[in-house]
Amino acid sequence: MSEVIVVTSGKGGVGKTTVCANIGSGLALLGNKVVLIDTDIGLRNLDVVMGLENRIIYNLVDVVEGSCRIKQALIKDKRCEGLFLLPSAQTKDKSAVTPEQMKKLTDTLRDEFDFILLDCPAGIEQGFRNAIAGAEHAVVVTTPEVSSIRDADRVIGLLEAAGITKKELLINRIRPELVRRGDMMSLEDIGEILEIPMIGAFTDHEEIVIAGNSGEPVAGRDDSLGQAFMEVCRRLMGEEIPVTIPEDKKHLFGRIRSILNRK
């Protein structure tokens, strides 16, 4: 059975593309056949985060317009068995694709893949409607900030209206030291406001920036961050694992050092 999951948020820059790349490679590492679709037409990103930007020949718009076959446009990630990317077009705009075409495309891909992950653009206009058209499951990404949470709330309402009942929350860029001193909303606070189950929580983590530089997902790495992404993937596959926040060790040591220095 295959599943079409859209990674969305409303607000830009909260980590949708990062999350999409990491759960994509994580799900593939767990033995699934996975395709990632970048639906951000005009501002493609996912190829860069995945380190596959040099291998693009055809893109999403080419497939939808029928200028190539799906197989020709799919880029196989040679570093990760079972992982494929359908990149977006850089020179077209959002109206180049319709929600009906996206639905048809994802339905076709269901025959071939276990997971079809859609990286949604920011906003709630056509790009958003395209991305959610074929999905039955949504991962809503938010940071612990008022504007981001408000946008997530709005998006949750729109997903509900579109009949997407399976919605899960991923909170990104938490700063534990701010939460501890009461200057950032906690996971519980955010969960209470947004009222959907939580599937993952991540701190603001240096390793994500570093991995982004070289175009390598961190999922599957032998550290708390890599393992936390694997846990999100296992939850997506139906396992029940409690959500914990992987702390950035460098921050942790930095904090201990600053406490010691204070004395």
Partner: peptide, 20 residues
């Protein structure tokens, strides 16, 4: 006021939700 602003954030979000 830069004190316990997380609570202010939560209260504002609740109000926004009700208003919307």
């Amino acid at each position: 006021t830069a004190h316990q602003t997380g609570r202010i954030a939560k209260m504002r979000l609740r109000q926004m939700k009700i208003a919307e």
